[in-house]
Design a protein around this nucleic acid. Structure first.
Length: 112
DNA sequence: TGTTTGACCGGTC
DNA sequence: CGACCGGCCAAAC
């Protein structure tokens, strides 16, 4: 049974909130963790409304290439990369360097 | 109620 | 290596 708080959106937000500082995750990983395997687009769509929420570090969510696809949705285009750099993540040309190293998979660290 | 779109992913050409 | 296509699911129109 679905309640207002069990929306897919909220689940996405909660997972993103659990991403540790200095780590990044991908839309696909979140989708997979939520059981919506292959529905990374929905996660991206959910992130579109994430900016209205205070504690959702959307800058830690990138696509599988480590590319900051969502930078354009921030207040400033450089805010996303700047924040990641500030957390110790190397970002170059809007791409997360050593992405595999900083990658944080919720399915590997969380448990339903 | 049906169509369109979207901060994606994977495989193919 | 770059471009193209299909699929996946939910919200907005």
């Amino acid at each position: 049974m679905k309640t207002d708080r069990d929306n897919f959106f909220d689940l996405v937000y909660q997972v993103v909130r659990l991403v540790p500082r200095g780590r990044v995750t991908t839309y696909g990983a979140i989708a997979n963790y939520l059981g919506a395997k292959g529905s990374a687009r929905v996660v991206g769509y959910a992130m579109n409304a994430a900016h209205i929420l205070p504690d959702v570090p959307a800058h830690r969510v990138v696509n599988r290439q480590g590319l900051l696809t969502g930078k354009h949705h921030f207040r400033t285009s450089n805010e996303m990369a700047d924040r990641l750099k500030e957390e110790g993540i190397t970002v170059k040309e809007d791409c997360v360097q050593d992405f595999a190293t900083f990658f944080w998979d919720p399915a590997l660290h969380l448990d339903f």
